[in-house]
């Protein structure tokens, strides 16, 4: 165990900016930069604490949805379905042991790109699938995922800045 914790360090750094750096700054340019840095330090603390758990859940949810998108596209005879499925299979799972945030982010981004490409192909089928309940259900589930994703990201970013002063 290393004390102080990373959170202690971030709080101490933020307060040093407030108590030591800012009183000596005269220009708006400098004060604007420190204002932004304080928001970013608070966000860093939140993300260090919670982003790993979010990413683990996000990766699991994305994998399920992307597989469904790939299967649907393949069932509709769209070759992009196979491309997306192959790309999905090629994206590695979580590393052994306690993962780093970077490793999880890399997986999450790779999945998001396949999700994006799959959704584009799915959107292109919309007119011809207007009466297909499976298509409608898949599209609805994608939107439900989007609600969840942004809800979680709001928890990671919002409290660091909302109501906490000028951003720049």
């Amino acid at each position: 165990m290393i004390l102080p914790t990373i959170y202690d360090m971030l709080i101490c750094m933020e307060q040093t900016i407030v108590n030591t750096v800012e009183p000596d700054l005269k220009s708006h340019k400098g004060l604007s930069a420190t204002a932004t840095i304080k928001h970013m330090l608070r966000q860093s603390a939140l993300r260090l604490e919670h982003e790993g758990a979010f990413l683990v859940e996000d990766i699991a949810r994305q994998r399920v949805l992307i597989r469904r998108i790939a299967d649907y596209l393949s069932g509709a005879g769209d070759p992009i379905g196979a491309t997306v499925a192959e790309a999905l299979d090629a994206i590695p799972g979580a590393p052994e042991g306690y993962p780093t945030l970077s490793a999880l982010s890399e997986i999450g981004v790779a999945l998001r790109n396949q999700f994006h490409d799959g959704l584009k192909a799915l959107q292109a089928l919309r007119d011809s699938r207007a009466d297909d309940a499976d298509y409608a259900a898949l599209r609805a589930d994608i939107r439900t995922y989007a609600e969840w994703q942004i809800g979680e990201e709001t928890k990671l970013i919002g409290p660091a800045s909302f109501g906490q002063g000028p951003r720049r």
Partner: peptide, 14 residues
């Protein structure tokens, strides 16, 4: 210049 996909962007654009 995409580095990360964005399904919400696609849904909104549609």
């Amino acid at each position: 210049d995409r580095i990360e996909g964005d399904p919400i962007l696609l849904e909104s654009a549609e």
